[in-house]
Write a protein that binds this DNA or RNA. Sequence first.
DNA 1: CGGAATCCCTGAGGATACTG
DNA 2: CAGTATCCTCAGGGATTCCG
Lengths: 144, 144
Amino acid sequence: MDGRTPEAVVEPVIAGDVVAAGYRLDAEDGVCPVRDVLDRLGDAWSVLVIRHLDGGPARFNALRRAIDGISQRMLAQTLRKLERDGLASRTVFPTTPPQVEYALTDLGRSFSAHLAQLAQWAFLHQPAIRASRRAYDAASGDDD
Amino acid sequence: MDGRTPEAVVEPVIAGDVVAAGYRLDAEDGVCPVRDVLDRLGDAWSVLVIRHLDGGPARFNALRRAIDGISQRMLAQTLRKLERDGLASRTVFPTTPPQVEYALTDLGRSFSAHLAQLAQWAFLHQPAIRASRRAYDAASGDDD
DNA sequence: CGGAATCCCTGAGGATACTG
DNA sequence: CAGTATCCTCAGGGATTCCG
């Protein structure tokens, strides 16, 4: 199974100046909590779900339809991760048929705000990055 | 992403628009630039290399030794990506033996600063996330 | 409707070996 | 020293199916 992360157990990891000291990713002394968050950013589905939930609560299939491209497997998995981390909340309505509503928690909204910041940075520097890539590719491909 | 109400997404920043509109990942006319940056964050090696280079320029094997755990393959690959994106610079000294020095560019330093911010957020909310996980795991395993 | 289980395939990434 | 190329593994994730 992939749902369970072996290193996800409680680890007395680094404290103090994480930023200045750098990221200790060596799993020798346990997984760095910072790594977790960064992984969530790298996960496209998590990002999409979070950003979408930022627009308000939504039900499972509503999310599935809205994101379009995500498989029910990934959606369920992503939602469970978010819920486990306390970024999203899950509310079950015992109706017929059963409805489950997902929503961002305060923590989730806080995280979503940081996502927006990152996106802004990316958007701002997109031209520079593109230019750099073009220059790099030109220099690499042009060798004769 | 088709029939959602514009008012539903309350985005004060320009990035919000980018995120809401550009996460389609369809590489029709190019991949979303925001996705690129997020991927870089998700890449543990990129993060490590960037954060390490933030401490000053370093040579290939110096980085390899410093990061320890990274394979030469991943290091070379990561450095090439960073260089291509204009986040890091590569300087070759035609000495014997040849020395190659890597350093962060202004763009790279800017990015590194954002990494630090993210890390700070993660560190700050680490207790909440951990608590949430513990509660979730307890509720999942113990259901009677 | 919401979700868990199964199958299978792709590719990220480690280890190793070889060049400049 | 600073890479590149090759092989191989194994986990991420899509498609499908079944259950509450």
